[in-house]
């Protein structure tokens, strides 16, 4: 593992040590976050699948009855019946925070509260098959919105998991080894200088002692003389 290009100083060492501590803590936290998100994600995906199957089944039903209505009524009559919608739906989008992911929350309101009052056509010129199709469609709407919300949440969550995983890996396999490596390098370098210094000092001391002896010897010589 490559060592960072830093000055092997004591200051740098403390700085790096601090960074390593932070990296370790961050790594642990992110790992927990990833695991928790995975759990949430799997739950979400499971319920999403169930819901999707349900919605698809209902839509198929609605289509089947629509088809029959289309067979019994002529195109003109059928389309005329559905030209102007009676019900209007307003949708409010807010967000909810799941593990630091902002997932959308859809809240819808229909103008009419009476669920039997959704038919925009008269009952004389149309067939009863159409009632069934329209009723199923209106029934499926809340489920479809719920499905949209869940699918979007799953998508966002997946993105976030991907990001977190990349971060965890980067910390685990790049940042932390790099930091440890560099710290080791600096410590070694510092120790090396330390030892060099020590030897130098010992040498100097020896030299100084030598000098001192010779000085004394000269002193005696001159005294005796």
């Amino acid at each position: 593992m490559a060592v960072m290009r830093v000055n092997p100083t004591r200051m740098e060492l403390t700085r790096l040590k601090k960074r390593l501590a932070v990296a370790r803590r961050g790594h642990k936290l992110l790992k927990d976050k990833r695991d928790e998100m995975m759990k949430k994600f799997l739950e979400l995906v499971r319920s999403n699948k169930e819901l999707r199957e349900k919605v698809e089944k209902m839509l198929m039903e609605a289509h089947a009855s629509f088809l029959i209505a289309r067979a019994v009524l002529s195109t003109e009559v059928l389309e005329e019946a559905l030209m102007l919608p009676k019900e209007s739906v307003s949708l409010e989008v807010s967000t909810e925070n799941i593990m630091s992911v902002d997932v959308p929350v859809l809240d819808y309101k229909t103008k009419n509260n009476d669920s039997g009052d959704i038919f925009p056509y008269g009952f004389i010129s149309t067939s009863g098959e159409l009632d069934g199709a329209i009723a199923t469609l209106s029934e499926v709407l809340p489920h479809m919105l719920e499905l949209a919300r869940k699918e979007k949440a799953a998508q966002l969550l997946a993105q976030e998991i991907e990001k977190t995983r990349r971060r965890v890996n980067a910390l685990e396999y790049v940042m932390i080894p790099q930091l440890t490596e560099t710290i080791k390098y600096i410590t070694m370098k510092l120790d090396e200088t330390e030892r060099g210094n020590l030897t130098r000092l010992m040498k100097v001391k020896d030299m100084m002692l030598e000098q001192a002896h010779q000085f004394e010897a000269k002193l005696y010589q001159s005294d005796g003389a």
Binding site: A81, M83, L84, P85, K86, F119, P120, Y121, G122, I124, S125
Partner: peptide, 14 residues
Amino acid sequence: DPQVIDLILDKAAY
């Protein structure tokens, strides 16, 4: 209410 269109006109038609 779009339904009234059908209701009134169906009645009138018959």
